Simulated scan of single mutants.
Amino acid sequence: MKLRERIQTALKQEKGIRLTAADVQALASLHNIGFPAKRQYRRKPSPSKEPMKGKERHIYQGDLDSVVAIDNAVAEHPWSKDEYLKRIHDPDIRGRVIELPGRGRRPRAVVAAVIYERPRNRSWIQIERIVVEPKYQLRSFGRQLIALLQSDLRFGRLTHIEMHVDESNLSLLLFLRAVGFTALDVSHGEVLMSYYWDSHPRPFHEPELDPPRQREESDWKSSIYDDGESGDTKV
């Protein structure tokens, strides 16, 4: 059995399995993606890849041309402008972008975007799309977008963030793994990646397997007001 099949089988049998560095290296080699396996310590990033800080804001209809262009550049199956329009007009779906400010002759530019679903009757966030312009990747813009959603968990009393990712999209899987997501399940060629604010995957908890609790028979007299053997009640 190939490594990829073994990992898929393990994910189906044991929910919440975590990929080791060796598994990630094997998957990277399988998909012909470079991975610094022989280097024990990561090099200091080059000046061209130093983290940059952009301005985060909600997505507007005027941003869609830029977002669609980024999606076409990075995604195997990009969304059309009509698909983005349909989603941003949905009251349960929200979008955020990161914009670099203008400098000199350079105009302001949208470099990253995330589309996510947050219905009122749910306790989690469902990421539908996250894209970063290729020339601005590895500059922490993706981490900035995920950090915004992670902060929403704490302040919005939500439990977790999840995203369904195509199993062939190894770069996105490795990115989500690097920002704290865990692979929970594989089905129909998609990997369910999930992040819990307290690092405790609650779907693993199965109440029906808990030991039965002993019912405590409650008396009409509380122990606070019962005076023991005399039976007199306290005033």
Rank of each mutant, 00 (worst) to 15 (best):
K221C: 11
R122D: 13
R4L: 09
V191T: 08
W197Y: 09
V67E: 01
R215D: 15
K55A: 04
I17G: 03
T159L: 05
G156Q: 13
V165Y: 05
A112G: 04
E206Y: 07
I127A: 03
E50T: 04
P107T: 00
Y225M: 07
H58A: 08
R42A: 15
R94S: 06
W124S: 12
H58K: 02
I17Q: 03
L64Q: 05
L209C: 01
D82W: 03
R139P: 02
Y41L: 12
T159Q: 09
V74Q: 06
G62Y: 07
L148N: 10
H188L: 11
P78D: 09
R120T: 09
E56A: 05
D71C: 09
I98W: 03
A69I: 02
H164D: 15
P134T: 02
L170E: 12
S230D: 14
K135G: 04
L173C: 04
H31K: 09
K2E: 14
R4A: 07
S171V: 10
E162R: 07
V110N: 02
L153S: 05
T182R: 10
D219N: 05
S29D: 14
N32E: 14
L158N: 06
S140A: 14
Q150V: 10
S168I: 02
R122E: 13
G54R: 01
D185C: 06
E229K: 02
D185I: 00
I224S: 06
R157T: 09
P212D: 10
H200T: 11
I130E: 05
M163V: 14
R57N: 00
D92E: 13
Q144Y: 05
S199V: 09
L184P: 01
T20Y: 13
K49W: 12
H164W: 15
W220Y: 12
L209H: 03
S223E: 15
V97S: 02
H58F: 11
F35C: 10
N32F: 09
L176K: 01
K53E: 15
D71S: 08
E56L: 12
G142S: 01
L148E: 13
L184Q: 10
G62Q: 11
Q126D: 15
D71P: 07
R129P: 02
L138Y: 13
I146K: 02
P36Q: 10
D90K: 04
K221Q: 11
E162T: 06
Y195V: 04
L3I: 11
L173Q: 12
Y136I: 00
R120L: 12
F181Q: 04
S222L: 13
I93V: 15
E190W: 10
D232Y: 10
I127R: 02
K86I: 07
S151A: 12
Q61N: 11
Y116Q: 08
G104H: 01
K55H: 07
Y136W: 14
E206N: 11
L11D: 01
Y41R: 05
A37E: 13
L153E: 10
P203F: 13
F204Y: 10
